[in-house]
Deep mutational scan, measured.
Amino acid sequence: MAAAAAAGAGPEMVRGQVFDVGPRYTNLSYIGEGAYGMVCSAYDNVNKVRVAIKKISPFEHQTYCQRTLREIKILLRFRHENIIGINDIIRAPTIEQMKDVYIVQDLMETDLYKLLKTQHLSNDHICYFLYQILRGLKYIHSANVLHRDLKPSNLLLNTTCDLKICDFGLARVADPDHDHTGFLTEYVATRWYRAPEIMLNSKGYTKSIDIWSVGCILAEMLSNRPIFPGKHYLDQLNHILGILGSPSQEDLNCIINLKARNYLLSLPHKNKVPWNRLFPNADSKALDLLDKMLTFNPHKRIEVEQALAHPYLEQYYDPSDEPIAEAPFKFDMELDDLPKEKLKELIFEETARFQPGYRS
């Protein structure tokens, strides 16, 4: 834990890192770190609560700039109880001085990944967590956004079992017609939660990839272990087919990539493993919904509104309290091709509203 900075004593240090967030945020305490930044909790002297502050230093890398800009653009436009918001952003007053960006968010005690390492969940908890994931996802999908990296560590939890989806750095506007060349190379989302079509096709992607990830998360809540822990690309596919069985001819016809289709045709026939054999203690309604989410063919996979209306979630289902976005989200430009200098300018502009004396 960093010592509390005395008023006016300059930035606090946390594990050798400068955290320049005073005077409003003090009493910093280390939480963890990701690929390009550290997260601390801090005391907000204005709202009198502890908050989470993520320090991001992305400006050396085009990919990190892209992810940072995506996350900020999306989260500043989203407003939903099951999606983490941005409360404040701290950065230098000029673009030349801006080396880091500090993002202030609600402090959540833990995440689903940490929880599943230590606790076996009751059916009631599984049901409530799944409902909140789908409630947040309904809003995301209504904005025409794909999260693309749903996994237990991106689901934040607090002691009252509130759940918030975080990390929109890989999110995209849904565009089933656009052929994202190089899709697989830039697709760094965790393999275990990846839909089979991501490994088999490169053309376009749809909201059904997020539903697949939610199915993987439900299976993990039922058993405290990942359902498809593939060691590499082909191993991942083999794990999936080992449980779902061989795809039907109709399902194979959806695979545009001939090499991928021929690979699947070359494999020995596998039978589907019954879900109640894998999860003998699970609620039968939970397994019915799991089956509809972990469907090989993305066109037959359940959609988020149908999933919310499934009998497993009937005690929570309330369409009048499951809000959607006001308007579909649009990125003005494809960020993939922009140089990091341009992305830095866009991050600077996007964060201006939090600067003292800002006038829109």
Rank of each mutant, 00 (worst) to 15 (best):
R50L: 10
Y187H: 04
T26Y: 10
A309F: 02
D235L: 13
G85Y: 03
F228D: 00
Y205D: 12
T110F: 00
A282M: 02
T160L: 10
L137W: 01
I83K: 00
P319W: 09
I302R: 10
P323L: 11
H120T: 04
L308E: 02
I53G: 01
D20Y: 15
A174S: 15
E81Y: 06
F129G: 05
K270Y: 03
V173Q: 12
P229W: 04
I217A: 08
T190V: 08
P247N: 02
E341D: 15
L294W: 02
G242K: 06
A219H: 07
T63P: 13
A42T: 14
A327H: 01
I74N: 15
P268S: 13
S122T: 02
L237G: 11
S320G: 08
G85F: 06
D179L: 11
I240R: 05
Y128W: 06
Y316A: 00
A352M: 14
R91S: 15
E96Y: 05
I198Y: 03
P247S: 07
V304D: 14
R359V: 09
E305Y: 03
D124A: 14
N87E: 03
G22I: 09
A9W: 01
D251V: 13
I133C: 05
P319E: 11
H299W: 10
I240L: 09
L76Q: 14
N253K: 13
P323V: 02
N257A: 06
R15I: 12
K99Y: 04
E197P: 08
R301S: 14
T68K: 04
I217Y: 06
Y43R: 06
A174G: 04
R194K: 14
V173S: 10
I255V: 09
L150C: 06
G85V: 14
R148I: 13
N87M: 04
R301I: 15
R79Q: 10
P229E: 06
V21K: 05
E71G: 00
P229Y: 00
I83N: 11
A6Q: 13
T68R: 02
M199Q: 00
A174T: 14
I256W: 12
D251M: 05
W212S: 13
S223W: 13
L338F: 02
E326Y: 03
L115N: 01
A6S: 13
N27C: 09
N238K: 13
I240D: 02
G136H: 00
I89A: 06
I72W: 02
T94E: 11
R225V: 06
R70T: 01
M221Y: 06
W192G: 13
K342H: 02
D149H: 04
T295N: 12
D332K: 08
Y263P: 03
F78P: 06
T206I: 11
Y205A: 04
S57W: 02
N253D: 00
D20L: 10
C161T: 02
M108D: 09
L267H: 01
A325S: 14
T118M: 08
G230E: 00
R148C: 12
E12W: 06
Y205P: 04
L134K: 04
T159Q: 14
L156G: 12
S57I: 03
A189W: 08
L265W: 01
T190A: 10
S360C: 12
V49L: 13
Y263W: 05
I211R: 13
A174K: 09
L150N: 07
W212M: 10
C65D: 04
E341V: 13
D100K: 02
K99D: 07
G242P: 07
P93L: 11
D336P: 00
I56W: 13
I198H: 04
A352V: 14
F228Q: 02
D106F: 00
L346Q: 15
N154G: 08
E33R: 02
D337A: 13
A7C: 11
L163Q: 15
K259M: 15
L200H: 08
I243R: 03
I198D: 02
E81Q: 09
D162V: 12
D235I: 05
S246I: 12
E305C: 02
D20E: 15
K117F: 10
Q306N: 00
R70V: 06
L121Y: 11
N201S: 12
E96D: 12
A52V: 11
P196W: 11
N27V: 08
S153A: 06
L244F: 04
S41Q: 07
P11D: 10
V188W: 09
Q119Y: 07
I227S: 10
